[in-house]
């Protein structure tokens, strides 16, 4: 099936884009790479009046060094993120998760910002943004504002983006010290969504785990931090036993859904197993 008819706008700057959204009528959809939006429109689950295509907004693409953070433009494709040396160096967790997103074709079109703004609970990048305490810069007619990742993901497919706003760029702080990072994803078949996945960043110091940050994918309507496990790991011995004990708390406070892929209790089991694996890998154990 092909999408229902819509009006099409193709701005070339952020200012033009927010203007096009304001003038687009009642039901406007912003298209980044289109890898989620076009399938949904093809199924007629969405039939927007206007599509504002950000594909030609050059200022939204690319990764830059901004001193204490790296900044990923919202329209930077997954393939560009994967190839970027700044991401590899300062946010290898993002690279590791991006590598698992869909397939090569989809990674050529799909964008980092689009994946965050879409906020699918099974998407891989929201949990990474949350674990790394990213800040999301959004623009609207009234100007720009910055939203911490912890406040950006509001509910199922729902973010803090207000009507008429677009995501411009994502600031990922450079973490001081020596960090290991790993993304552990559980899926049944190739190119599938995560049933559960765990994003882990671990800082080791003198045989101990000094600090751990753990993001959970698909353990609720939004990405979550495994705060109980993070607390248990802070200052813990860098041993397999200590990590396993801490990972046992990974499902605390989660409310995963039950669907065709997995029941909620199975997802909670997976969260513990995958957290153990992710932290062990990130800690180099």
């Amino acid at each position: 099936m092909i999408p229902a008819p819509f009006a099409y706008a193709r701005p070339t700057t952020v200012d033009e884009a927010v203007q096009a959204i304001a003038e687009g009528g009642e039901d406007v959809k912003v298209m980044a790479g289109g890898q989620s939006l076009i399938p949904v429109m093809r199924l007629r689950l969405a039939a927007p009046e206007t599509v504002v295509d950000l594909g030609r907004v050059a200022e939204l693409r690319g990764v830059r060094d901004d001193g204490d953070a790296i900044v990923i433009g919202a329209m930077t494709t997954h393939a560009q993120v994967l190839a970027d040396p700044l991401v590899r160096q300062h946010a290898p967790l993002v690279a590791a998760a991006t590598e698992t997103v869909a397939d090569r074709q989809t990674r050529h079109r799909g964008t980092f910002g689009g994946a965050l703004a879409h906020a699918d609970p099974a998407g891989d990048l929201p949990a990474c943004a949350l674990a790394l305490d990213a800040e999301l810069v959004v623009a609207g007619l009234g100007g720009r504002r910055t939203v911490p990742a912890a406040e950006f993901f509001v509910d199922y497919l729902t973010t803090a983006l207000e009507e008429g706003e677009i995501l411009v760029e994502v600031r990922i702080p450079k973490l001081p010290g020596e960090w290991g990072m790993h993304y552990e994803k559980f899926q049944r078949v190739a190119q599938a969504w995560s049933i559960v996945a765990v994003a882990a960043a671990v800082r080791r110091e003198d045989g101990h785990i000094a600090e751990a940050r753990i993001g959970l994918t698909n353990m609720g309507p939004t990405p979550l931090r495994a705060t109980a496990t993070e607390a248990a790991l802070a200052g813990a011995d860098a041993t397999v036993e200590a990590v396993a004990a801490a990972a046992g708390h990974a499902a605390e406070g989660t409310s995963p859904s039950s669907d065709l892929n997995a029941q909620a209790d199975y997802r909670q089991h997976l969260a513990q197993v995958l957290t153990r694996r992710a932290v062990l890998r990130a800690a180099g154990l």
Partner: peptide, 11 residues
Amino acid sequence: AVKSCTVLAVQ
């Protein structure tokens, strides 16, 4: 490589 069923001709 792209999946041409997931790209609009205008893109």
